[in-house]
């Protein structure tokens, strides 16, 4: 009787474990290749590197520092603008009287359905017209505009579930909507705000399409674009390329591990209704 459940359990664990290896091993291989020499990468793809010298990592750091700085700037600023604008908008849409409110909900959330690829051709000329083509400003503007719908969607869903009597009590005490937003609602929303911040950082740190098309100076390009051009620039220096890939992936993986508890909590309360 207890044979089959035990078998099933063993099978499930084997499944989880092998999936885990499938996920982790390629990433480990990537990080280890940053320690190998070119010929070792070709000759001995398995096993540990001969030395743990950080020379390739140092070279990769020097080559990607500029891209890292650019990525950092774009990610940080666009996270602040996106989450701030979305929270502000979500509050207005859920908790203030507003003429034509359903229309605005449809308009803003409808933006989620639209593909950035379709907007590509006209955006080139628009950004050139605005004189911000090939600047970090262009990416910040686009990342904000294209992520406000989704972020607003998440925050709005969360705010809809917050009890109404909070605002009413505060209004009675003479608080303005701005004060209620800042003092009461925003702190209550912190779980979903954290989820939104993490999701936006994931997006902005990794975005490639816009970054590739709207930037082309080395000082402006973000990591994903810089990495893809490294293959041609570094030529045959594979170890440095692998090291650079690892350097680019590491911060975001660490960030996820540090925040995952809050991140999942916000999502659970936000969208799992």
């Amino acid at each position: 009787m207890s044979f089959w459940p035990a078998m099933a359990r063993a099978f499930l664990w084997a499944l989880l474990l092998s999936l885990g290896v499938l996920v982790i091993y390629p990433l480990l291989w990537m990080a280890l290749n940053g320690f190998r020499s070119n010929s070792q990468i070709f000759d001995t793809p398995f096993g540990l590197p001969d030395s743990w010298a950080l020379t390739h990592y140092a070279a990769a750091w020097a080559a990607t520092r500029g891209f890292l700085a650019s990525s950092l700037l774009v990610t940080l600023v666009s996270t602040v603008t996106t989450v701030a604008i979305s929270a502000w908008t979500a509050y207005g849409l859920t908790r203030t009287p507003m003429p034509g409110q359903p229309l605005f909900v449809a308009f803003i959330l409808g933006g989620m359905m639209l593909s950035p690829t379709v907007a590509l051709v006209p955006l080139v000329r628009m950004l050139q017209g605005l004189g911000i083509y090939d600047t970090q400003g262009a990416l910040i503007l686009l990342y904000t505009a294209f992520r406000v719908p989704f972020t607003t969607f998440l925050i709005r869903a969360y705010m809809l579930d917050l009890p109404r009597d909070l605002d009413e009590a505060a209004t009675m005490d003479g608080a303005s909507p701005g004060t209620i937003f800042r003092r009461i609602i925003l702190p209550l929303c912190s779980p979903i705000l954290i989820s939104c911040i993490v999701l936006h950082i994931l997006f902005a740190w990794n975005e490639y399409l816009f970054a590739m098309i709207f930037t082309n100076s080395p000082g402006v390009q973000t990591l994903p674009v810089g990495l893809s051009s490294m293959l041609s620039k570094q030529g045959t220096n594979f170890a440095t390329l692998f090291a650079a890939m690892t350097i680019s992936a590491l911060p975001i993986v660490i960030l996820f591990f540090l925040t995952q508890r809050y991140f999942i909590r916000g999502l659970t309360e936000g969208i799992g209704k």
């Binding site: 996920v23 994931l202 990794n206 490639y208 990495l227 890939m245 992936a249 960030l255 591990f257």
Partner: peptide
Amino acid sequence: AVYFIPSAISTTV
């Protein structure tokens, strides 16, 4: 968390 890791990494990488 383990299964999520690849999603946190850029598609370029």
